[in-house]
Amino acid sequence: MNLSLYWLAFSCFAAAFVLHLYFLKNKNYLSRRFSLPIMGTGFALLTIFMYSRGSAVGACPIGNPFEIIVFIFWTSLLIYLLVALFFSVNYLGFFSAGMIAVAMVLVRLFPALDYAYGEGHINSSAIVGMHASLAVFSYGVFALLSVLGIMYLVQFYGLSKRRTGSFFTFLPSLTQLEHLQTWVLSTGLFLLTLSLFVGSFIYLYDLGEVPHYKLSFTVLVWLMYFVFLVLRLLKRLFSSKYAWSVIIGFLVALLALIPVDRARQDLAPHGESEIMG
């Protein structure tokens, strides 16, 4: 598969990140007027890349770990663009661009993740595709949530260690970041719940096709974010503990993708025609 669009998108994110760094070095921050078009171009290129992949398999391109990871970051970009369009959250673009650029390079360091697959289980029915897309979409939201968690910790560290400077001044306040985290967490959990709701039909009507270990891990991830949200709403989880929870939570959720991917491989029909890779 041609990766030129992928790398073009990467160059946009890398450029946005470097520009942010340049402004940061000059004790300033890159305005949304400049960062949004760059990030938007990267998003558009990544969308075309994903679309061309999807066209090849005739479904949402989440057939292997590489595609899943790219889809996750595509989603977090989409949410970032929506947030950035309506709210002024300084440095969210900087952190998002940095995270996505690094992730795009890292994921290509393991070409085996982009293995060939055919019209397997995911593409076998619309309901399965919808379930999987919603689940991966919620992961994208959780990725953005972890970015917000990192931003919170940076501001918190600055305040605790009496650090000053324009970087900390321009960084959103703790209260704003905490509110945004809760909003993003609610959105992610809503999407994951919707995904599980759709997935429950597969489980109910096609019991044999859902391995128990996959079900357990998925429910555990959902439960983890549900507990985070409940504790947050009850004001039992706050400040740096909340930020650490959503960051570690996202890493746990990413690890849970391993058994989920294994389940898909186990269930892939024999003799499928390889169309990717």
Binding site: L159, T164, F168, T169, L171, P172, S173, L174, T175, Q176
Partner: peptide, 9 residues
């Protein structure tokens, strides 16, 4: 004020 804004916005 600067510190307060970093905490509360």
């Amino acid at each position: 004020v600067d510190l307060a804004q970093r905490i509360f916005g």
